[in-house]
Design a protein around this nucleic acid. Structure first.
Lengths: 339, 339
DNA sequence: CTATACTGCTTAAACGTTTAAACTAAGTAT
DNA sequence: ATACTTAGTTTAAACGTTTAAGCAGTATAG
């Protein structure tokens, strides 16, 4: 059916061996001493026949696929969508193709994706790991397949990663809220053991401690992943049970969006009745009645650094790891004012 | 560096030929009459050595890569992110891997992606085409590479596609606004020649005509792509130059978000001063002070049908095309009320 | 005791590349 | 005349699979 043109077809058309065609089309005619006329004929024939090299065969020969496997926690989450975009751009610059997969925060999916990608001989991975994927990452290490974690990492796993200083991000956001005079600053996070969740909690907790505040369960809201019902139940409880909360720090972008919506539904005025600090940028904030304060992650830099490190690792003969911790930025707007 | 295990390694370990190993690991031991003991030994060795088949070599041999190239107009746009998700899910079910690329609405990028994917021997494409990509699609047809267009299509290109009835969508939304008693219904769209833009305009225009309304330039706002400056200039003009506009229909999700934000910035009350109808669902709407009416596209079905058709096309010996036009749904909420 | 069939395996070619090595024909140096 | 160089090309093996064809050796049928 499909008219696939190979080196052999060009060779036949011109009347030379495939070797010559290969040399010419890889611009190695000089070192292979191909005559200019032959080279010209080969190039013309290649164009004429719409030749497209078979990257699979090349990869098989070279052992390099020039492909990077990107495993996102959730491709439909714009945070990861933007990250994917920067990673694609940077990879393109370095001559790599990106194969994207979404684990949907499920380590089983992630494992299947990993195997699919390994079978396709990708040269390395960039991964936003789901909870519970430690074993898989160890496995990658055993196989000597280079990978870089983004957004999240595991303390006990030897690996390269590019993340932000999550402790500092929530610490500074909390301190800002306290500095503005808020008394009862609540913290909303997911109920998981991912390091960035822990770090963000610790940052909040430390800032509270420094201000002489006690973190009680009345200030905490830990909700299940991918479970809006659980969120609504717990967050409504937090905000309506007379806990006197006058400020809330949300620790992820999904929690931020859910939280703002719930506050709006509850008719709680921001910032008059409660101040709000969100995590990550979102187009949604643009439509909120009150300009939203948030922790801004350097998405572009995360993507670029991850690709750069991965490409270095792929090129290196001996394994090494590089850890990058970037700074985030507080974007302070009306939502965290003290009224 | 990387410890890649091949059939040969297993064959050596067990003391048989690679052929036997291949038969066993493909569960074809019966037809190849491999003895149960040998088969067992082979499986054990494969497990022991962590064997992962080389899909590249398989594809080279079979001429099938079991991979689908997905070219999105913009991966950071959640509309396409969600679509990508359903396409990945459905492809997985059918045994295909998806390779995603984002053209960023630029046909040059799209062309480069296409070539990269062809070189990787993808079996077919799913494409949300950028403006100006007609020539590339014709080229795909020449090469007999199956593809399915989504979201957009071209009248003059023979192809399969899965789209919604855009004419009907805007027609019905406009009719709804008129039925509610709005007099001057404005229409905001991109200034391009993509069929879905034209269809959406025609739907609006027809509904206006049916109501005995004339569509004048005072009601139209055609803005440049990827150019918020142009949008703000023209849309502000539209809304503030005494055009008496009492309802606006936005024709894409990006225009909807930009529009809502601008209306909010201008202090124009929705729906009291102006009614609003948006296109596509968005998390952002959740945070808008007024529940937003919108045209809801069946994302899941679009993705599923696209994959199903593509897989059929890949499997067919002779070329065929299938066009699917799905219905969208109007979600009517407060934003389009007549006050 | 000779065909024939079956069992359990190996061989070898092929997919589309790359690339070291070999080959031929001509030119140059001694 | 002989050896060596150079230019321009071909040959062939290799990457990791698949699979048709072949080959022993044993079992069964007549």
């Amino acid at each position: 059916m499909r008219n696939k043109i190979s080196l052999k077809d060009i060779a036949k058309a011109v009347g030379v061996s495939t070797a010559l065609v290969s040399y010419v089309l890889n611009n190695r005619e000089r070192e292979a001493r191909v005559s200019p006329e032959t080279a010209k004929k080969i190039r013309e024939a290649a164009k004429e026949l719409n030749y497209q090299p078979n990257q699979l065969a090349k990869s098989l020969k070279s052992g390099k696929s020039l492909a990077i496997g990107l495993i996102l926690a959730d491709i439909s989450n714009p945070f990861f969508g933007h990250l994917a975009r920067t990673i694609e751009d940077e990879s393109k610059k370095k001559g790599y193709t990106v194969i994207v997969g979404s684990s949907d925060e499920n380590y089983k999916n992630s494992e299947r994706l990993m195997n699919t990608f390994i079978e396709r001989q990708i040269d390395g991975f960039i991964i936003a790991p789901a909870e519970g994927s430690e074993a898989q990452l160890k496995y990658l290490n055993e196989l000597n397949i280079p990978f870089v974690l983004i957004d999240r990492y595991f303390k006990e796993i030897e690996s390269s990663y590019v993340v932000i200083d999550n402790f500092r991000a929530t610490h500074d956001a909390t301190a800002k809220l306290l500095e503005l005079g808020h008394q009862n600053v609540a913290f909303v996070c997911y109920n998981n053991q991912l390091q960035h969740t822990i770090d963000r909690y610790n940052g909040y907790s430390k800032a509270m401690e420094e201000a002489g505040k006690k973190v009680t369960s009345k200030l905490l809201c830990k909700v299940k992943f991918n479970n809006p019902g659980d969120f609504h139940l717990k967050f409504r409880n937090l905000m309506t049970k007379g806990n006197k909360i006058d400020a809330v720090l949300f620790s992820t972008n999904t929690l931020s969006t859910l939280g703002l919506k719930t506050l709006m539904d509850l008719g709680i005025k921001i910032p008059d009745e409660v101040a709000v600090f969100c995590f990550d940028e979102s187009e949604s904030y643009d439509l909120f009645y009150c300009p939203v304060s948030y922790v801004s992650q350097p998405l572009k830099e995360i993507g670029q650094r991850a690709v750069q490190i991965l490409v270095e690792m792929i090129g290196a003969k001996s394994g090494f790891h590089r850890q990058v911790i970037l700074n985030s930025e507080l974007v302070i707007r009306e939502s965290c004012e003290k009224r």
